[in-house]
Design a protein around this nucleic acid. Structure first.
Length: 804
RNA sequence: GCCAGCAUGGCGGAAUGGCAGACGCGGCGGUCUCAAAAACCGUUGAGCGCAAGCUCGUGUGGGUUCGACUCCCACUGCUGGCACCA
């Protein structure tokens, strides 16, 4: 290591100094210009923080430090999202208790985060596994429950019959087998807790329009919510309730030639003739098996069975045969459809396979299921109406008049199931009383502590391992005092993370989830930076929880994150880092070798922060060399004694650099900001003569968000008072940004042929004269007159000449 | 299949209507050294030329424009999301 820049000593020195002075412990009560800079808290895995985490935290920290130098009181907390099935599975695998594992993982994460040099407010950290935290996660659940937003319902869960455990969706492999043992997964219906996020779909959708978020993230949320406007239509059944279907194309109803139910539609067997029931029941069982397996083969599109009965067309009275088929899903719309094979490709494929009639009712289609885009035909009184609009409204209205239909909006977003039949999570604070049913645990009895049971293996009954601990579950009913049992399921880890940002400012309070005064002062979050992999679940749940707490009187805002920016992904060998791929890069060795500052710089310099990039260890020496050069300049200046006044060219370069870094940093265009600083350093090195002090002073300030330790060191050696991070951001002087001379390109028919220097602001006429006067240009023109001259002031003169 | 985003030297990237390749990595040549590393200096899109310089060049094909990496149309490939959502 070159002696001019000993990154190890410098970084240790300043980290210690920051800790001692409490530089980053922003006083929350007194702050005058609060700025809440949030980043997604990590899951403390056993491998330690990887480069992807470092990338996200570095970028968020650069942003926070920049805001601090803009004069804000920045609050930049960090915490640990440590509950969940990953921890639990890992603990099972290595046969240790998750409590022990998590504690050491967190210690390791904390050590790594401290080395990175982030301005974290460590006194306000949270750990979701800490009873002092999940006390309030349980409170949140109770609050939502009391607000009518939590309910119990039976729903299917994925179940491994070999491991006897409930599986998360992502633990089911593509072929429908368990990821751990390869056994085919089945479904079991269990009574579970749900949060009524579906009550908020419209607000979740509308709110997006007002938010300053990455467009990609908003788009993902819109798709996930999946709003679709259509009609619910009732097709009468002789001797039974009408069959209800959902369609977005009510205008094509005259083209409906058959009906299709999802195999697991509740009325499938009822609508089957008695003699076909055995065959249909067998088909339904087979279809269910394939659905769990997630089979996506081609044949699924054409697999189905005739039920032997018909529905009556509400307008024509014709009989439409009813089928059950796998291409119709029970969980969406009405779980049943009217099939219009002439104008829907899936219906078309099915009609072909079962030799069902195809009737075109929109002109201009290709007859194979395309939508067409003309007028209605073969549609009785509606012929000639433009399709799809306004025809679908007119048709729906006509059917509504007969009492057989209405306009309906449907969504893909389902209610949020939060029950987990596992161990490693906060117990759901409910008590089941034989007399009173499910009763909330009284708030003064929170937290319901997760017992330290030694055997936390899944039980095999569809219940949580807590169900083997009578000491835990045996209790009394809070209402009647009779014998009762605690809920033994724990809650989803997304519930923990749905409100953690509310906790940070109040992390040390024990009298409530979040202090009203601090919350009013610090929230909503000013900037939230995180990965787009959480675009729909975490970010949507957090918005829902904030809206719900708002409606229940706990918050005075509805949207928790005013500004959200998605950062890119760091990949290695073209693949996202993950332990299963074996390509996790742990940053410690690079920080040892190059220092946290050079490492941060390398990560931020790779490309636009929103894009991520490929991690290549080669290349970190570039930023390190850059820092070394600055320290060499510093040593040179110190050796030369007090430098004289700053030469004009260097002052201009300095102000251009300030300008660039100042505009790029808040836009998270860190790569170009760093490039500007590198260019400036290059310029300084080329300069003969003493290094002007303002150059280094400015560099220390501009570098502070990016390389917080090196910037402190330079700042101190220049004789300035602690700390560089408390200085105001430098301002570019507009007068210094004006160039003395500009290079004007002269081109003929768009090709560069010469160049001249001119004063900025030279008039177009004058530039044209200068251009025409150039000997080189006259040579190219060879006597021809330009038919047109385009002058771009201060930049270019383009001469248009015929026949060149 | 649908919806986004992306495509520029050996590599990461810059420039979003006006000098393509800033800045960095790597390579090549040199300085220092017994030597090596580090560092420093020079050079580095391709082709032609002794040279001044010229020609070509931003995934492919068209278009708009005095002028296109940039805007429009079509296509190809990659990345991410959704995926029988009626």
């Amino acid at each position: 290591m070159p002696q001019e820049y000993d990154h190890g000593a410098i970084e240790a020195k300043w980290q210690e100094r920051w800790r001692r002075s409490g530089l980053y412990e922003t006083p929350l009560e007194q702050a005058e210009r609060p700025y809440y800079n949030l980043m997604m808290f990590p899951y403390p895995s056993a491998e330690g923080l990887h480069v992807g985490n470092m990338y996200a935290f570095s970028g968020a920290d650069v942003h926070g430090r920049f805001q601090r130098m803009q004069g804000y009181d920045v609050f930049e907390p960090i915490g640990f999202d440590a509950f969940g099935i990953h921890s639990e599975n890992f603990a099972l695998k290595v046969d240790r208790h998750p409590t022990d594992l998590i504690a050491s993982n967190i210690r390791n994460f904390r050590r790594q985060l401290e080395r990175l040099g982030g301005q974290f407010a460590w006194s306000k950290t949270v750990e979701t596994t800490d009873p002092a935290y999940y006390h309030w996660t349980q409170w949140l659940f109770l609050t939502l429950w009391k607000g009518g937003l939590a309910y119990r319902a039976r729903r299917n869960v994925k179940w491994c019959p070999q491991d006897l455990t409930v599986l998360a969706d992502e633990q089911v492999m593509a072929d429908g087998t368990c990821e751990r043992c390869g056994t085919p997964v089945v479904e079991r219906e269990l009574e579970q807790w749900f949060l009524r996020i579906s009550a908020y779909t419209e607000r979740l959708l509308a709110g997006l329009d007002q938010l300053d978020w990455s467009e990609s993230t908003k788009l993902l949320q819109r798709h996930w919510i999946g709003r679709s406007v259509g009609s619910l239509l009732d097709f009468p059944i002789d001797g039974g309730e009408p069959l209800r279907v959902f369609t977005t194309r009510a205008d094509t109803i005259f083209g409906a030639t058959f009906m299709v139910l999802a195999p697991d539609h509740p009325r499938t067997l009822e609508l089957t003739t008695p003699e076909l029931r055995p065959a249909v029941a067998a088909y339904v069982a087979e279809a269910t098996r394939r659905r769990i397996a997630g089979v996506r083969e081609e044949e699924v599109a054409t697999r189905g069975i005739y039920l032997g009965r018909s529905a009556r067309h509400p307008l024509t009275g014709r009989n439409l045969p009813i089928y059950a088929a796998e291409y119709v899903l029970s969980g969406y719309g009405a779980g049943a459809i009217m099939a219009v094979p002439a104008h829907d490709s899936r219906d078309h494929a099915f009609a072909k396979a079962f030799d069902l009639p195809i009737v075109e009712v929109v002109s201009g289609g290709d007859g194979t299921g395309g939508h067409g885009g003309g007028a209605l035909v073969n549609s009785g009184e509606f012929d000639g109406l433009a399709a799809p609009d306004p025809a679908r409204e007119v048709v729906t209205a006509a059917i509504a008049e007969r009492g057989l239909g209405r306009t309906h909006v449907t969504y893909k977003l389902r209610d949020w199931g939060i029950s987990r039949q596992r161990y490693w999570g906060p117990p759901i604070p409910a008590i089941h009383c034989p007399v009173h049913g499910a009763v909330p645990v009284p708030e003064d009895q929170l937290p319901v502590l997760l017992p330290q049971i030694a055997d936390f293996r899944p039980l095999g009954t569809g219940e949580s391992p807590l169900a083997r601990d009578p000491e835990f579950f045996n209790t009394t009913c809070p209402i009647c005092g009779g014998a009762a049992q605690r809920e033994t399921d724990v809650s989803d880890t997304f519930l923990d993370s749905s409100w953690y940002y509310l906790r940070y400012p109040s992390a040390d309070r024990s009298d409530g989830a979040f202090d009203p005064g601090l919350t009013r002062k610090w929230l909503p979050v000013d900037t939230y930076i995180g990965g787009n992999e959480h675009a729909v679940l975490h970010l949507l749940y957090s918005r829902f929880v904030a809206m719900a707490l708002h409606d229940l009187g706990w918050l005075d805002f509805e949207e928790p994150f005013t500004r959200f920016r998605a950062h890119g992904t760091i990949v290695q060998n073209g693949a996202k880092m993950s332990k299963s791929r074996g390509n996790v890069v742990v940053p410690d060795e690079y920080i040892d070798r190059f220092g946290a500052d050079a490492f941060r710089l390398y990560l931020m310099y790779m490309g636009p922060f929103s894009e991520g990039g490929e991690f290549r260890a080669t290349g970190i020496n570039g930023p390190q060399r850059f820092l070394l050069q600055i320290f060499r300049l510093l040593a040179r200046m110190e050796g030369e004694g007090q430098a004289e006044a700053e030469p004009r060219v260097l002052a201009q370069a300095r102000h251009r650099c300030i300008q660039q870094v100042t505009t790029d940093t808040p836009e998270l265009k860190f790569n170009t900001a760093i490039a500007a600083m590198m260019s400036f350093v290059k310029r300084l090195k080329e300069h003969q003569g003493p290094v002007p002090r303002p150059a280094l002073e400015t560099l220390a300030l501009l570098l502070a968000p990016y390389c917080p330790h090196a910037a402190e060191e330079i700042w101190e050696r220049l004789g300035n008072p602690y700390s560089v991070h408390q200085q105001p951001w430098p301002k570019a002087d507009p007068a210094m940004l004006v160039r003395d001379q500009v290079a004007v390109v002269i081109s003929i028919n768009g090709k560069k042929r010469d160049q001249l220097m001119a004063l900025p602001g030279t008039s177009p006429n004058e530039l044209q004269e200068l251009a025409l006067g150039s000997p080189r240009i006259q040579q190219w023109l060879a006597g021809r007159r330009p038919s047109r001259v385009v002058v771009v002031p201060d930049r270019q003169v383009n001469l248009v000449v015929a026949g060149d």
